[in-house]
């Protein structure tokens, strides 16, 4: 598929191809959801197996988690604004909102690394107990997905720099934003099941 202007049948085919890619990515995200579901299941089984180490109540810092949540949710918001800018045809606006998304996403990852590093330094790393293994893995897998999204944002930005708001750039942006919102959704589950229920607020 090129970015050359198209009409008629070729445009229809190009739209269909883009729709196909989006549909394919949706299905891929659903498989990712099953992956997270397996990690949630492991967490559900293991979260009381603290083996003499700390439990969730001991290690969860809810204000900190709230900060992470705000960062991630806001980044989802800015990502939405980027998509709107793109639809409105403003390359600069899109670029700017993507920068904001990148910054917020990077801050989220940084906070999570900070939290994990602190736990490891205190001797409560993932090899301490089954609970900690499942906590680190569930939350860490989500964080890894977010971290992988960061170079993706750069790639989308590079595409916009190269080709402006072309068909392919718009498609890349669309797929990225699906991914980003999906991670938001997973975070809401993590926030609820791991942190709020772990701290016995639910």
């Amino acid at each position: 598929m090129t970015d050359a202007p198209m009409t008629g049948v070729r445009e229809q085919e190009a739209n269909a191809a883009d729709g196909l890619k989006a549909f394919g990515f949706w299905v891929y995200l659903m498989t990712d959801l099953v992956l997270f579901a397996s990690l949630f299941a492991a967490y559900a089984v293991l979260h009381t197996s603290t083996f003499g180490g700390p439990s969730g109540r001991d290690i969860f810092d809810l204000p900190f988690v709230l900060a992470e949540t705000v960062l991630l949710l806001t980044s989802s918001f800015t990502c939405g604004l980027a998509l709107l800018s793109a639809r409105a045809g403003s390359a600069r606006g899109t670029f700017a909102w993507l920068c904001a998304t990148l910054a917020l996403g990077a801050s989220f990852v940084a906070l999570e690394i900070y939290e994990f590093a602190g736990l490891v330094r205190a001797g409560d790393g993932p090899s301490r107990s089954a609970f900690l293994s499942s906590y680190f893995t569930l939350v860490g897998t989500h964080g890894l997905h977010v971290a992988l999204g960061l170079p993706w944002i750069l790639a989308v930005m590079a595409a916009i720099l190269r080709r402006g708001l072309s068909r392919s750039s718009l498609r890349k942006l669309m797929l990225f934003s699906m991914f980003w919102h999906f991670l938001d959704l997973v975070w809401i589950f993590i926030f609820t099941v791991v942190y709020l229920m772990g701290a016995n607020l639910l």
Binding site: A42, L46, S49, T50, F51, P126, S127, S129, A130, T137
Partner: peptide
């Protein structure tokens, strides 16, 4: 060295 399935460490 995690403990998802180990004997001991809380693994299942």
């Amino acid at each position: 060295g995690m403990h998802f399935f180990t004997a001991g460490g809380g693994g299942n």
